[in-house]
Structure formats: structure tokens, C-alpha cells
Write a protein that binds this DNA or RNA. Structure first.
Lengths: 212, 212
DNA sequence: GCCCAGAAAGGTATTTATTCCTTTTTGAAC
DNA sequence: GTTCAAAAAGGAATAAATACCTTTCTGGGC
């Protein structure tokens, strides 16, 4: 993964390793000296601003650094990307209907989580939920386990987990996205539709894998 | 160093490894589906066009790939992520209705198989089948991918792939096991039941994971 | 203290990537 | 063959990064 913070740390690091200031590095690469100004790393409205890929290619070219060295600079500083963990947090879907299992951002918290072997480097912060009833059949049945990646961009047709205000996380099918919220269909046999407004949604996740 | 050609090869590779087209990858990452069109990789005047770092960050986030894996793709190497995530053979379910895609034992053979990153628990000889129709909906839909472990002990309720004599592999629900064969239910809406004798079964596999 | 060069802030203009739209192509399903 | 959906091409509008410009800040040398 590649965060806004990481990439700017890496650029500062490359400059430093080559005995240059960020502005000196830009000049050396044939760019405008203000390209990497701290003042240009976030927009006036707070939106993060990213250097272009072409600028990155130019500073690698100018300093003779390899892409691997750049990546090491990205990973080496805080927020390293390579997680060595071979497993993800696991709990039952029924258990998390109570409070205290997720941070406000949808990350697992507390001591009640188990672990499930899921070795891929995929999807930092993914977690697994075990289905304990047949309410969601035929899609998911008692004993199935779903792997959820939180905060993924959602599209029509996606199978999602939605945590709405004052409700436990629930498994849903995303029927469509509207300006003010999501149209969701329950995967059970009834297929009831419901609309949830963005303001009532605490977090969402996409179901990326399901074990059978 | 980082060349224009390399970066586009890497993007194509990430898409392919995740069972997606370049346009599918863009959609998954929340970007416009045309973002990675070949027609947008060079300007009309021949000038090379580069994807933005923010777009790169988004496809890493969406696929769960590490920056290291991306760099390995840039460098043209394969399987840098194989330490954590294994690559398994991938093909469409419709394609394997013909002959010559499996050994008599149900192992993938031939040159038509692709590769896909599977982040889940390692499994010897597993392979992936991409669903290309909505026949099996709502359980599996067009675009879903199922991971099949061949020669697994089967139990009632399992979702299975059965290769019967003179038929292509088909997705079934195992209703019950009898002395002389298997009672299978098709997962489509009709839910037709059929009985297949052991002597007519070439091989079976259990569907261990499904992604959408 | 004063001067100076580099660095950085801040703003505007320009370039470039993305989005949005339509059309064409492709491949699988029926 | 026909139909359908996804992918891709191509073009115009929009959004975002860089270039360009001026001003302010910083540190060293005098």
C-alpha cells in the first residue's frame, strides 16, 4: 500500500540521502524547485496532493536511485507496508451485534477476537466473520466465513457489510448508490430492500472472500 | 528507475493477477473505467501519459497488493508476493466445458490457464474458476471466482464441482451421499436434483472459497 | 547588524490526468 | 445468427499537479 504521508517521507528521504533539500532535488531532476514544497503537499482545503508518477521517475533518474530503494524509503519509515502477519482477526457475526467489537472506523478492537489463517498480504485491516445462522442462505450458511475489507469503494452488486448507527454490522447486497445513501437488499429469502443514508452509516466493508 | 512502459506493464499485471481487466481494476479502485485504457497511455501527439500516484495507491488499496509486489511487477519479476500469497491456476468455467483442461485426476493441464493471487490458506493443487454467466445466481454471479480443492472429502451441504463422464465440470450442491453415488442439486433457481453414480464420476472438488 | 543565496510560502497560469460522455468492438450467452 | 454486457476507443469537460512568478524566511559570511 502507498499512503500520502509515506510518499512524501520517501521523497524527503531521497533528497537527504543525496545531500539535497527537497527543492534542490526538484531542480536536479529538471523540475520546478517548488514542486516538492511542503506548502504544496496539501491543498488549501486540506485535500492531500500527490506528486505525479512522472516526477517520481525523474527524481529516480536524476539521483540514480532504484525503484527498490525508493520503496525501501517508503516502507522503512513509519507505517511500513509489509505486514508479516499470516492471519486476520476472526469472530462470529452474531457476537459482534453487541458493542465494543469495532473502532469507530470499523477496525477490530477488544479481546474477543480469534485468529484465522489468511496469509495473503492482501487488504490491510481485513477481518473475518463467521456465519452462525441460516438467515442469509442460500448465499451464506451456518459455518461459512466471510472475509471483509473495510473502507473499500463500493459498486452496485457488491456484497457488503454495513454498520449503521445503533445497529450491529449486517450483511447486505448493494442494489444501487444514491446521492444521499445506499439502497441495500438483504440476502435472505425475503430480499427486503432498505435505504440507509450516508449520515447513518458508521462504516462499510466489502466482502472479498467467502469460505464454504 | 521507472519507465513509462514498465509502469503500464505493471498495471496490466496487477489486473491480470487479480482476475480483472484493466477497466475492471479501475472500477474496483473507485476510478473511472477508462482511466487505464490503452488509448489513454499515449497522447495523440505521441507524448507518454503516466497514471497518477494517487491512482496507483488506489489500485494497491483495492487489490490489497503491497508496494513491493507492484515494484516486482515493474521489474518484470513474478511472484514477489508468493511468500505470503500463493498463485493458483485460473480459467473461466465456460472455457473448461471443452476437453483438455484437466488431467484424469482433476489437475489443471494445458496452456490456456492463467494465474491468480489467492490470499487465503495455502492449499495444494487448488485452482480457480471464473463464473461467466448468471445461471448459478444468486449463489454465484457473473464475475465471481470460485476456488476449488480437488479430491477433498465431501459432506452433505458442500458446494462442489463434479466432473462426470462425458460432461464438463459443473457446480453443484451436495444433497446427500448414497452407497452408489451422490445426490446433487443444481444451485440455480430450478434446483433440479440429480443422482450421479460413483462409476460415472471422474473427479470431484470442493469449493473452498468464493470471491466476488 | 547587513548582505546574500537557497529554501520555502503563496498565488496564478499552464499542462496533464481523470472524469464523463458516446460509439465501437469483443466475447459469451441464448 | 442475435442479444447482451463488458471492455475499449475516442473526444470534450473537469480536476489536479506542475510551472512560473513574487514574497518571505533562514542561515552563513562579511
Amino acid at each position: 500500500m502507498l499512503s500520502h504521508e509515506q510518499i512524501w517521507i520517501a521523497i524527503d528521504g531521497i533528497a537527504k540521502r543525496n545531500g539535497l533539500s527537497p527543492s534542490g532535488l526538484a531542480k536536479r531532476a529538471g523540475l520546478d524547485p517548488t514542486t516538492f514544497n511542503r506548502s504544496k503537499r496539501v491543498a488549501p482545503d486540506g485535500r492531500p496532493r500527490w506528486p505525479s508518477t512522472e516526477s517520481l521517475a525523474k527524481i529516480l533518474e536524476a539521483t540514480g536511485e532504484t525503484l527498490e530503494a525508493f520503496v525501501a524509503a517508503v516502507a522503512g519509515k513509519k507505517g511500513a507496508s509489509s505486514r508479516d502477519s499470516q492471519s486476520i482477526p476472526l469472530i462470529t457475526l452474531s457476537a459482534v451485534q453487541g458493542d465494543g467489537f469495532f473502532s469507530p472506523e470499523g477496525a477490530p478492537v477488544g479481546n474477543d477476537w480469534g485468529e484465522m489463517l489468511f496469509p495473503g498480504p492482501k487488504h490491510k485491516k481485513a477481518f473475518a466473520l463467521q456465519i452462525t445462522s441460516n438467515e442469509l442462505s442460500p448465499l451464506y450458511r451456518r459455518g461459512d466465513t466471510i472475509v471483509v475489507a473495510p473502507h473499500q469503494p463500493l459498486r452496485k452488486g457488491d456484497r457488503v457489510v454495513v454498520k449503521a448507527r445503533k445497529q450491529g454490522p449486517s450483511v447486505q447486497l448493494l442494489e444501487r448508490r444514491t446521492a444521499d445513501g445506499l439502497d441495500l437488499k438483504s440476502p435472505d429469502t425475503d430480499m427486503e430492500m432498505q435505504h440507509i443514508k450516508h449520515c447513518d452509516i458508521e462504516w462499510t466493508g466489502r466482502i472479498i472472500w467467502a469460505s464454504q
